[in-house]
Design a protein around this nucleic acid. Structure first.
Lengths: 108, 108
DNA sequence: CCTATATTCAACACATCGGTTGATCAAGGG
DNA sequence: CCCTTGATCAACCGATGTGTTGAATATAGG
């Protein structure tokens, strides 16, 4: 999946909060409503509702309709886009390190 | 690498800024000083210096000493810790999706 | 020693974030 | 039809983030 700068901004910012990360962890085990997601946290449902909106705006979750409930679903492809971005630079760095080690070995 | 909640907060927040992501990209190709990192951006060196401090506090880079210069170096293990966190939940979600598909197939 | 260069500190402005409370909207169930 | 439940909107508050300018610190080098 290709993402632009704004998408990365929103996605990484969304993950930079322990409440939202806990929600991601919960949603990896299956869909959940606002009330279900709010349950473990000592904050208001309104605050939880906004956390969910942040995750949705970041593309990390989608929402469906089930009567008066709005279940949330994790979007694995969005997570994969983030690991891809990170890995590009991690792998480049590790390759560079290995080249440097090889060069040092040769000089012995 | 094991990271706590605060480390994840700082690391993801550090990546939630296009300037800092561009610095990460630059550093993947080799160490760079504050001045070198500042070059591509239309902001003051002081602002760049603080971006660097954010990346360092997040553990994403380390700094060495070279005379009056303070070169920055990317820390691949810190990036790897982030992809590990993300992948745990992405993979769990994908496994769940596959189980659901298998179940639907069986019901046909 | 003196000066230029590299970097950082301090104080400020402004925007955004994450929480609250209170009101509102929407769908279901008796 | 009313009332309850699920969810959201709006306004506000304190904290944090990102930029600025101006001053300070530290090392290099003539």
């Amino acid at each position: 999946m290709m993402v632009d700068d704004d998408q990365l901004d929103r996605a990484f910012a969304a993950l930079a909060d322990p409440v939202r990360r806990a929600m991601i962890a919960r949603l990896s085990r299956g869909p959940a409503t606002v009330n279900e997601l709010a349950d473990p946290f000592p904050i208001t449902k309104q605050a939880v509702s906004r956390h969910i909106q942040v995750l949705e705006a970041a593309g990390l979750i989608t929402r469906t309709r089930d009567g008066q409930r709005r279940p949330c679903h994790l979007v694995p492809a969005a997570l994969e886009a983030l690991t891809s971005w990170i890995d590009e630079y991690r792998l480049e760095t590790e390759r560079r390190f290995r080249r440097m080690e090889a060069l040092l070995d040769k000089e012995q």
